[in-house]
Write a protein that binds this DNA or RNA. Structure first.
Lengths: 226, 226
DNA sequence: AAACATCCTGACCATTCGGTCAACGCATCG
DNA sequence: CGATGCGTTGACCGAATGGTCAGGATGTTT
């Protein structure tokens, strides 16, 4: 991950004398704090979020949040790492021999579900990038760049095999990212314009189908099996 | 616009005894402050931005910023209104009789240029939506919703005339918005992954062409003239 | 019971927050 | 020369910021 962070002193706990009740409390509180912090950071950004607000959202005193998490900065980095881990699990193994249509649809679908399952984390990530990615710069130009270029090469080979149009694969990946991310990050806009209270599972399925159809057709993807 | 704001006491100036030098100073300072504030608000969000930071970015004392702008809130609202005005000027007059291919390409192109010409304003808008659109809610579910639905109806008529596939027009508008907005909002990600220092005019032209091609083909748009 | 370790939190600290205000600079006009 | 009025800013205010710390609560192990 190699984020630009101060020396972290986390994961030092895990005491040996832990009965069932004790560890359960700690786990529950940590989970509660992480969830609350994700909401607050996503809404207000790193600078705009206050430990006090996170504590109130978690229903705990401020001191308790700092007791568990050490510092605001450490809490934020931990949330980013959790989100990046979810991200990295996506579409981790594809090869030139796979079917382009299947892979692209799976890509769109899994990315869409990631945004849906973790909307706050998705917005947290967006806020970090929007602010110039001060914590994620190394990750973007390192791991993620390799990830993108590996997949870009496969797309290019598909294009050479005539399985899809010769479009720039990096712009294509950005197109899919942006289109899917939009429904989490700009949820307020989507809901305001459509007049809905929330996006139902059926809505998400419809959007996924729409994106798959337009993007696959737009890139001239031909299924291998057909 | 009808934003949820406190009673504004702006535009009260314009004194009659203004020689050339005086009005010029005011205009220059206001411009400087607005530009600096747009950068800072875009990067850190409303809560995370401080008047002190805006003042430093503008090269003025904090008191001077408040003298010109009245309050942090008023400054923020003024920036949002300026950005919405730019937005509203976009694709303001289309009719069923226009050529779908031309209209969609113009839409993509002008939206892309808006993001490029005003990247900070674009990010400011994104941060506002990301935070739940506390100032823009009324605008989103009012003016902007009408704007979208008017254009959606035209797209639908084009689909009925066989000029494009029967895709959901609202999802299509969101697709274009997200794809074009991405290059301003996620600039840090785009630069990190491509390894570029900045996007050149040629890059932007290439991306515009890519998006136009994929989206038009993906929606089965047939040009009227062909 | 005594000892031990973790959990928990109110009080406190220096700093920064948005905003006010009085005072001064400085030009134009009578 | 005043007088008027906008431009400018350092000093200041109460509130909120991230973080520290001492000490009490709680429970498990001897």
């Amino acid at each position: 991950m190699s984020m630009s962070e101060l020396p972290e002193t986390e994961d030092v706990n895990e005491p040996q004398t832990m009965a069932a009740s004790n560890g359960a409390t700690r786990a529950r509180n940590e989970r509660e704090i992480l969830a609350a912090a994700e909401r607050v950071f996503a809404r207000h950004g790193y600078r705009g979020a206050s430990v006090q607000a996170i504590a109130e959202a978690a229903g705990l005193p401020k001191s308790n949040v700092l007791y568990y998490m050490g510092s605001k900065r450490g809490l934020y980095v931990r949330l980013l790492e959790r989100m990046m881990a979810r991200w990295n699990a996506l579409l981790d193994d594809i090869s030139v021999d796979d079917d382009p249509a299947e892979v692209l649809e799976a890509f769109i679908r899994s990315k869409m579900q990631l945004s849906r399952r973790h909307p706050e984390g998705s917005r947290l990530f967006a806020a970090e990038i929007l602010g110039g990615a001060p914590f994620l710069q190394a990750y973007l130009s390192g791991e993620l760049r390799d990830w993108v270029q590996a997949r870009a090469r496969i797309f290019e080979q598909w294009a050479e095999s005539g399985l899809m149009d010769p479009v720039d694969p990096v712009w294509l990946i950005f197109l899919i990212w942006s289109a899917t991310q939009h429904y989490a990050d700009f949820e307020a806009q989507v809901l305001g314009i459509t007049g809905k209270d929330e996006l139902s599972d059926a809505d998400v399925e419809e959007i996924t189908a729409f994106l798959t159809r337009v993007i696959l057709k737009g890139c001239g993807v031909r299924s291998r099996e057909s």
